[in-house]
Every structure is written in structure tokens, then in C-alpha cells.
Design a protein around this nucleic acid. Structure first.
Lengths: 215, 215, 215, 215
DNA sequence: GATGAATGAGAGTTCATTCAT
DNA sequence: TATGAATGAACTCTCATTCAT
């Protein structure tokens, strides 16, 4: 029965695209699939079904499932790196240079927005980052390292300006911040398209700046 | 090839155990395996090899790979629940009731120690918690919920005592705390058997209590 | 439609065998298949269909198609080596020690009979020996080397006894003999179960001994 | 990846050729490829890469991979047929008409030289001749038949002249000769561009004429 | 004519699960 | 109860062939 159904629905119309466009299309499809099924659970079948191409087409652009995954991670890494460059200068330009908490808030807001915009890619990263597959270890480590280094550097600047306590280790703080981001993304942002990013960013910055003590 | 080897060297001695003991033995083996390979990478072969049991025996105790995974999560959930009951009272008993930061520190210290003691189980949880598999969603959600609720409740008590700022939402704080815990465990505790738990707990409590502002 | 047919005819009865027996059965099936289809053309499907086992069963005994091929070649190599040991002594025992042509004839007869008995294996060797696949190069080279060395050694003995011309290089003669054997097998023996091996062996020995000159 | 490389470096210049020239070019490329990789290992990709032609172009000249293979075999068959016509007359012209061994030697020398000159084509024939593929059976059988018939006819002439023993069957001798040729080509000529063809031809003729008996 | 992106049947392989012993 | 040989659906990947440009 399913044989007949597939026979009827198949006979795909051949659609030609430039290699670059097809590649991007496949990366998009794979991101979508990986975000929903996870790397191992997802099959090439899912990806090509989503992209609407034949099996062989996939292997015209990527030599393996692994390769497209790396391509996705690199793609995101690139976007993040580019975004990173803009975050601080943008925050500074916003004229809050003298208000650290405002800087923290603006920065957090931008990060949350960035991942909200790249929901699927962010999901892939968060879901698979802890996967044990050693073939991907490198990509994820670099990604996380980049972020941690960025946060640590910014914190150090605050310390040098005498604004942040010098008793706090920058690297440790960077990781705590990463952990909080992960959780906020996982819990609130990625699950809810209408999450109030402003409120989350404000609360986070407030906590980071003041702690929980009632002064 | 390996067939011959096993035939020659093993010829497993039938070790009789009570059903409960067998079950526990299998859960322990599976925990060890899942922690190292991840749920999907790990095969039944790995588990039975570690347990020293035949293939069929596994299915005498668990109807599927999925089921033993759920059993592991439930097992841990139980341990955590039991541990949770002791954490606060223990902290209180320690006589720091009047020093909130000390309470936070002692509590964090206990949590870190708990997971350090259950390294493999903790690894399984952290690695697979973000797995998308909806069959596991429930177990993980409950686990996390339990922890979040516990943290939120404690924070609320601090607020009621006028020790913590009332502008901070308990639920949000609970999640931030969870995120920081995850990261500390992942980055420092689970990777390093000799991690300095005291220092980590102290730093965490200090940050939670004071934030990063230079007062 | 074929779906239904296969559904009806499938549901294989599960037949248990000892690993050794199953292994031999698979080697036999693969030899049969490779002899008829050639290594690359033949699929695992053909082998398991012939053996009447499931796909997975094959991989229980061989890790790859390549491996079972090597197993076949080794199997034959072993048989040949064992046969080689018997050929000459047997020929000598036959009491023809003083009649070189009779020795050549008896030896040829035995060789032809050996390959006639292992028709499929012989076919595999002859068909695939010239295959370019470098993964099999070694096995075949050894096989051929063994045979060539054996022939060369025997010829040298004849020379030392003053029975064979010393102007003929043993190694070259060994190869010429191999070439003739190949052709006889290919043309006459392997294609025709009723080939007159006595006649072929006699003609070959006659030619080797006397050449074609009318004395 | 290679996609980018080829895009950047190639952008193939449309080289216009007459259909016949294209066809020959493709046959040459395929011969080269098949000789090195074997029929099944070789891909259309290899052939078009060697020919510097697009995928579709190949199918403009040959309807299938199989067809170009047949074309190669026919091509060689034609060359051999043409060469055959010249061999004997040439040998005769050389004035050795009265010395049968010299005729054998000269003939062998010419054959060896012919295949040495068409090394790749010869390799293809020898490697694939034993391929089981029934689609190619015909071509190879004809090829071999032609050669065998030629050798048999010449031998018969020697017999009629009373120079060769009449007890030797011409057809059998023809095949023995073919077998020896195959082996010499395979072992010595095709592997070594500097093989001493004179020596090989002399040794072969000597053996054929005199056998191995010490007279 | 010529191109090369696209196709999809079919290959080899894996592994959770079953069942004869 | 315990065993481990056997199963087969599902997976990743290949490549001769097609066809829109």
C-alpha cells in the first residue's frame, strides 16, 4: 500500500540550484532536523525530506552526516564571532559606558536576542554540546572557549576600572555566566517564542551586579 | 574472531543472584556505560559485557534499552530526593542559621559532594538531559523541577527572613542557580576527581550573595 | 505485490548451529556465489540467500564482505598447501621415480583433480586473482608464489638428476607451467564436469617433456 | 570542497572536436582508467576526469559504461586482427622459413611487442577477461577464439610440413601457448616497461620446440 | 553539442530484540 | 533462570544514469 502511495507522490520535479544555494538550503534543513531529533536520532532521510531533495544530492554537498554537522557548528561559530564583535561596541555606543549594570543588561539582551533569532542552531548547540562524540568535541570546545574568553575579558575590564570586585576570578565568573545563559535559553527563550527578553536580561544583570543580599 | 576468544576464555560461570541484586548490577553497569558512551552510542553489548551477563539475561530484567535508562534516572531521582531531605536540616544543624552566605556555601558544598560521589549518574543526567527523545523528557523534567522547587523554596525563606532581596523572583533565581551548578559540575567537578569543592562552593556562595559589584 | 509474497514466504524458521558449522556454511555459500558472480558483483544478499540466513547473521561471523573473501582464499591456500605436501610423495610412491614424464603426468593429473574437486574455489581464485583490488593482492601473490616455488623446486631437482635441460631457467619454467595450468583449468576443467583429466594431464606432460619438435 | 576547487580552477573551456575524435578520446581515457582500476572499480567520474569532459558529454557518445567497455574490447580486437595478418607474413619475410624455432621466436617476439605497445589495452583484457559478467563474455570469447585459431592453424601447417609432432593436437597446443603468453605478459611484460622481450621470446620458443628433456 | 546538478535504487553495515536451547 | 545464536528493519553512503539549462 505504502508502495503505491510513495509511487504516486514521488517522481520529484528536478529543481536546479547553484551549489551555494543548495548547500545553504541543506544546512538549514539539517539544522532544523538536528534541533528536533538530535544528531544521532536524525537520519539523512529526515534531512533530505525536509530539503526536498534526493538522497544522492545530499552527498553531492557533504561527504557524510558528520560533515554537515560540523558545517552547522562552524556556521554558527562564524555568526557568533561576528555578533561578538558588535555586542560590546554596540553596548558602549548606547551610551551606558558608565553604568556597568546597564552594560551587563544590554549585553545579555543582545545575546538572548541573538539565540532567539537562531533558535534551531542554538538548540543544536545546547543539545549536542554535551554529546560525548569525540569527533565534535573540538568544535564545541572552541565555541564555548570563545564565549568564556569574551566574558572573562569583559569582566577583567570592569575590575580594572574598579567597578567589579577584584576577589572574583574572571574565568570562574565567565563560566557561571555561561551556565546561567544556558539555563535561561533552555528554560525560557528556546521553548517560548514570546519570552520577554528584556525582563530576563534585566533580572540577570540585576542578579549578577547585586547578588541576592538585601543591602 | 572474538567469537573464538570468548568461547575459549569465558564459558561464563552461571552466577546465581537474587533478582533484585541482578537488577541493581545491571543498573550499575548501564550507568557506567551510559556515562562514558552516552545513551545512543552505548549498546546492549557494552552493558552486558560490563555486567558479565548474557544477552538474553538483560531482557529478563528490562524489556528494552529505554527501560533501563528510565530505571537509572528514577534511581538517581530517588537518591537525590533522599539527599535533599537531609541537606537543609544538616546545614541548619551546622549552626550557621544566622549567616545566609554560610548556608549557601554549605548547601552548595553538599550538592557538589553529592554529585562528585555519584559521578557517573550525574554525568548521565547532564549529558542526556538535553536529549530530545520525548520518551525521557518526563523523567528529566521531574528531576529538574524537584531541584528548582527546592532552591526556590529556600530562597523564599531567606526573603521572608528579610535576608534576601524581595525584588528577585525565587523561581528565576532557582534556575540561575541550577545553571551555575550544571556548569560547575560539567566544567570542574565531573572532569576532575580532585576538584577543590570547598573553593568552588565558597566562590559560588560569594557570588550569589554579593554579586560582582565593588561595594 | 512482491511485498505480500515476501511477507508470506518469510518468517524464517530459526535454525541454530554451532559457530564453526555456521562459519563453514557461510564460507561455502560465499564461495559458490563469488565463483558465479565475482567478488564485486556479488552482494551480501546473494550470500545470505544462498546460506538461508538473515542479514545480521552474516555479520556475526564476518565483519565485512572483504573478510569473508580473505577467509575463502586462506581456506583454499590451506587446502592447497596440504595437498602440495602429498602430491610429490604420492607421485614418487607410485613408483615412477625413474620416469620424469610419468612424474609430470601424475603430478598434473593430481593438480587438475584437486581443482576439479574444488571447482568453485578454483574459479574464485582464477577469476579474481587478476582483480586489481590491492587489499587482496597479498593473498593471491602468496598463493601463486607458493605454487611457482613448488614447481621451480621440482624442476631444479630434475636438472640436478641430469634429466632436465640445464639451459632452462627453473623460475621461468615454473611460470610457463602455471600459465598452462590456468588455461587448462579455465578452458576445459572448470567448464566441464566430465573433462577427461587423464588425457589433459598426459598431453600436458608430453608437451612439457618433448616440446613440439618432430624428433 | 572539491566543488569549490573545480569551480575556481576549471570552468572548462569548451573544446570542440569532431564526434569521431571525441569518441576516440573517450575510449583512450576509459582504457587508461580501466587498466588501472578495473571495470567495476572505475567510475564514470574517473573517465570523464581523464578525458576532461563533462558528465553528460560521456552519455552523448556512449549509452552506458558497459558500452564503452565493449567498444574498447572491439577496438583492441580490430587492432589485433590487423596485426595478426602481418605477423606470419612478416616472420616469413624475415627469411627464417626453414627454421621452425626461429619462426616461433620471431612470432612470440612480435606478440609480446604488440602487447607491450598496447600495455593498457592488454591489461584491460587480461584483468577483465575472467570477469564473469555475461555481457562481456561474447567479446572476450571471440578475442580468445581468434588467437587460438590462429595459433592452431600455424601449428597445423608445421605438422603438415613434418616439422611438428603429429601426436600433438593443434587446438590443445594453441591453448597451452595462450596460457603461457598470458602468464609472460602478466608477470613480466606488463609490469616492467623494460622487460627483455628478446630473451623471453627466445626462452619461450626454445621450450616450445624442445620441451625440457635433456636429449 | 555540451554541461553538471540532480536522481534513486541498491550496496554494505549495525544493533535492539527474539527465541530455541 | 540463563544463554547466545539468530533476526531484520533501519541506517549511512555510492554511483550509473538523467535532464534542465
Amino acid at each position: 500500500m505504502s508502495v503505491y502511495i510513495s509511487r504516486m507522490s514521488s517522481k520529484r520535479r528536478r529543481v536546479l540550484m547553484t551549489p551555494d544555494a543548495r548547500r545553504q538550503q541543506l544546512i538549514a534543513a539539517a539544522t532544523w532536523v538536528f534541533a528536533r531529533k538530535g544528531y544521532r536520532q536524525a537520519g539523512i532521510s529526515d534531512i533530505i525530506a525536509r530539503a526536498g531533495v534526493a538522497r544522492g544530492t545530499f552527498y553531492l554537498y557533504f561527504t557524510s552526516k558528520q560533515e554537515i554537522f560540523v558545517a552547522i557548528v562552524n556556521d554558527i561559530h562564524g555568526r557568533i564571532t561576528r555578533a561578538l564583535a558588535g555586542v560590546d561596541s554596540a553596548a558602549a555606543l548606547a551610551g551606558h559606558a558608565t553604568d556597568p549594570q546597564a552594560i551587563l543588561r544590554a549585553s545579555a539582551r543582545r545575546w538572548l536576542a541573538f539565540f532567539a533569532e537562531h533558535r534551531d542552531a542554538a538548540t543544536v548547540i545546547l543539545k549536542e554540546a554535551s554529546s560525548i562524540d569525540p569527533r565534535f568535541e573540538k568544535g564545541f570546545t572552541e565555541l564555548r572557549q570563545s564565549a568564556a574568553a569574551f566574558f572573562a575579558a569583559r569582566f577583567k575590564r570592569l575590575q580594572e576600572l574598579g567597578m567589579a570586585r577584584s576577589s572574583m576570578q574572571p574565568e570562574l565568573f565567565a563560566h557561571l555566566q555561561l551556565g546561567m545563559f544556558d539555563e535561561l535559553l533552555n528554560r525560557f527563550v528556546l521553548r517560548d517564542p514570546h519570552a520577554d527578553l528584556d525582563a530576563l536580561a534585566a533580572a540577570l544583570a540585576d542578579f549578577e551586579w547585586n547578588g541576592i543580599r538585601a543591602h
